[in-house]
Write a protein that binds this DNA or RNA. Structure first.
Length: 210
DNA sequence: CTCCTGCGGCGATGACCAAC
DNA sequence: GTTGGTCATCGCCGCAGGAG
């Protein structure tokens, strides 16, 4: 299989630091990828808690497999591939069982506003900002329309969903998606097109209802 | 320097086929 | 019927090179 772009000198330098036990390097790696990995994991598993567990397992896998990283693909591609393998395994398992972490009654959901945004005296440490980006797109992507899109994404066939999430949500290049998923360029394009078509139809039907 | 043209890369799209 | 895969075609965009 073609492996596309090999690891950059920056990637290799980072890997050397990680292997040397550089904690700040690992912290910066987590800061760069944790959110993206969580979003990607959520396209395979049903709950935020499961996604977090998948990401944790991915970081463990990254650390334990780092010695075997040969730099034949970029570090990002390699990490995403580990996550997808773990998430797939978890997704299959979840299809048969209900994860313990999903049994909450919903009352323990995340607070609407992060506690660290308040001062001890109850005042704002970080006040809410005005919604000034009231473009039609931004308005559309809040609330119900966004929920409808997310629902449509979760209902996509797994491979279409993976391509769409990687390309459109994570901004991964076409070449890297092919490397991560081990699929041909043409195939990647068609799956992306089909996934986008489904979302387009979902959005259209939502707008028709309005 | 500017404009035009040809070319290549890439994405979008439709059609078709195969497997399940 | 659904999904995955391939192929062909079209359009857009950026870039290089030549003409004026």
């Amino acid at each position: 299989m073609a492996l596309g772009r090999p690891a950059s000198p920056e990637d290799l330098a980072l890997v050397r630091k990680l292997l040397a036990g550089d904690e700040t390097a690992f912290t910066s790696l987590i800061e760069a990828y944790h959110g993206r990995l969580t979003r990607l994991a959520l396209s395979f598993v049903k709950t935020q808690a499961s996604a977090q567990e998948v990401v944790q397992e991915t970081w463990v896998g990254v650390l334990s497999g780092l010695k075997r990283f040969e730099g034949r693909s970029s570090l990002k591609t390699w990490i995403f591939r580990i996550l997808i393998n773990r998430a797939k395994t978890r997704g299959v398992r979840e299809a048969r069982t209900v994860p313990f972490s999903a049994l909450g009654d919903g009352d323990e959901a995340e607070p609407a506003v992060e506690p660290e945004r308040f001062r001890a005296n109850g005042g704002w440490a970080e006040p809410p900002h005005r919604w000034e980006d009231d473009t039609p797109e931004a308005l559309l992507l809040r609330g119900e329309a966004r929920q409808r899109l997310e629902q449509a994404i979760t209902e996509l066939p797994p491979r279409q969903r993976t391509v769409l999430v990687l390309r459109d949500l994570e901004g991964v290049s076409a070449e890297e998606v092919c490397n991560i998923m081990g699929i041909a360029e043409t195939n990647q394009r068609v799956m992306l097109h089909r996934a986008r078509s489904v979302l387009h139809r979902a959005l259209e039907s939502y707008l028709d209802e309005e």
